[in-house]
């Protein structure tokens, strides 16, 4: 499984990335939505398309919601699962992200178990981890 972790905080990228690596994921990182779009395009050119994107909401240059809309507008990335991982916890924000095309929503702070549960719901937990 492959994941792209998108967050302007290096610390948060490391935390999310380490949890995903423990679950067996191969992880790449991006510091904002635009970098993530570039990473998707470059990845596709080399045959690396992520199964999952973990996306922060508030980022400079391009925020998480704009990234979700951009990915959903591109048919090449239709199979990529998008999960918001953010401090934005107002119901209106969650509805907006899901309406834009995000599949799941995880509110910071979270535990490794909470992320694991979300991945299980999405069918993105490698079998050896779910066992």
């Amino acid at each position: 499984m492959r994941a792209l972790v998108i967050d302007d905080s290096r610390a948060m990228r490391r935390i999310v990335g380490n949890i995903l690596k423990d679950f067996g994921y191969e992880v790449r990182e991006a510091g904002d939505g635009q970098q993530a779009l570039d990473a998707l395009r470059e990845g596709k050119a080399e045959g690396w398309v992520p199964d999952l994107c973990c996306i922060d909401w508030n980022m400079p240059v391009m925020d998480g919601l704009q990234f979700v809309m951009a990915v959903r507008a591109n048919p090449h990335f239709r199979q990529v699962t998008l999960m918001m991982v953010t401090t934005e916890s107002e119901t209106g924000q969650i509805v907006k992200a899901l309406a834009a095309g995000a599949h799941e929503y995880l509110i910071k702070p979270f535990t490794a178990d909470a992320l694991r549960d979300k991945l299980a719901l999405l069918g993105l937990l490698p079998e050896e981890v779910s066992a």
């Binding site: 302007d8 905080s9 290096r10 610390a11 948060m12 508030n58 980022m59 400079p60 953010t86 401090t87 934005e88 916890s89 107002e90 209106g92 924000q93 910071k108 702070p109």
Partner: peptide
């Protein structure tokens, strides 16, 4: 690293505090 980690702590604190305040509100970087 220090600025990033301290900033992320403030960000998560701020986001969660925002959620208990009247909304809609927006959070800065």
């Amino acid at each position: 690293d220090v600025a990033d980690a301290l900033g992320e702590l403030a960000n998560v604190l701020g986001g969660n505090i925002k959620s208990v305040l009247p909304g809609p509100s927006s959070l800065g970087l």
